[in-house]
């Protein structure tokens, strides 16, 4: 913050010097440029309730959408704790189910807990943060930031990769 304040001060001094010069020569100050609309550095993700813990059965995909109805995804209760897993057992994860390669819908394979793309055979590991096991996507699978409250309601509150087919995750 100190550094920022100093930069502001430098700017103010420059401005004053300029205006002093302007006053001395009795020339009117130029009009101020149009003000840019303020915008935030991060995309503002909605906090959407997707399900309750009670809705999930181990290793059965629970279809959801996030951050809006055009973005299909899935919640999974893996049955074993994983890094990044939410809920009382640390085993709930959520992923986009649109392949980040060419936008085909992914299919869940319960036998090895993977999401598979019928378009070009890419595979993503639901137990390893959506890591692409093999495939043509240049990104691992977008995963939801999940929060589970006291009542067991599961909220998605963010994504960690760009969704296929949109240049902003929140449209």
């Amino acid at each position: 913050m100190d550094r920022c304040n100093r930069l502001v001060d430098v700017g103010r001094r420059q401005f004053l010097r300029g205006s002093a010069f302007a006053a001395a020569t009795a020339v009117a100050l130029p009009t101020m440029p149009a003000k840019a609309a303020p915008s935030l550095a991060l995309v503002e993700y909605p906090s959407n309730k997707l399900a309750n813990v009670a809705n999930l059965k181990p290793n059965e995909p629970f279809d959801v959408t996030y951050p809006d109805g055009d973005a299909p995804g899935v919640l999974l209760k893996l049955g074993t704790k994983v890094e990044g897993g939410a809920g009382p057992d640390g085993d709930i994860v959520g992923f986009s189910t649109i392949c980040p390669h060419k936008g085909f819908p992914l299919n869940f394979n319960a036998d090895d807990r993977t999401l598979n793309c019928p378009g070009h055979y890419s595979r993503f590991d639901c137990e390893a943060g959506g890591q692409q096991i093999w495939g043509q996507s240049t990104a691992n699978l977008p995963q939801y930031a999940l929060r589970v409250d006291d009542k067991g309601d599961i909220y998605a509150e963010g994504l960690d990769e760009l969704l296929y087919g949109r240049l902003s995750n929140v449209l």
């Binding site: 055009d70 973005a71 649109i98 980040p100 060419k102 936008g103 085909f104 378009g119 996507s137 240049t138 990104a139 990769e161 760009l162 296929y164 087919g165 949109r166 240049l167 449209l171």
Partner: peptide
């Protein structure tokens, strides 16, 4: 995002379909 304002001439405020030419990955 307006069609006239981007190289694809499509409304980028909408989800684009599979195999769209109007999308690019961070990579």
């Amino acid at each position: 995002t307006e069609a006239a304002a981007n190289a694809f001439g499509v409304n980028l405020a909408e989800q684009q379909p599979a195999e769209t030419a109007a999308w690019y990955a961070p990579s």
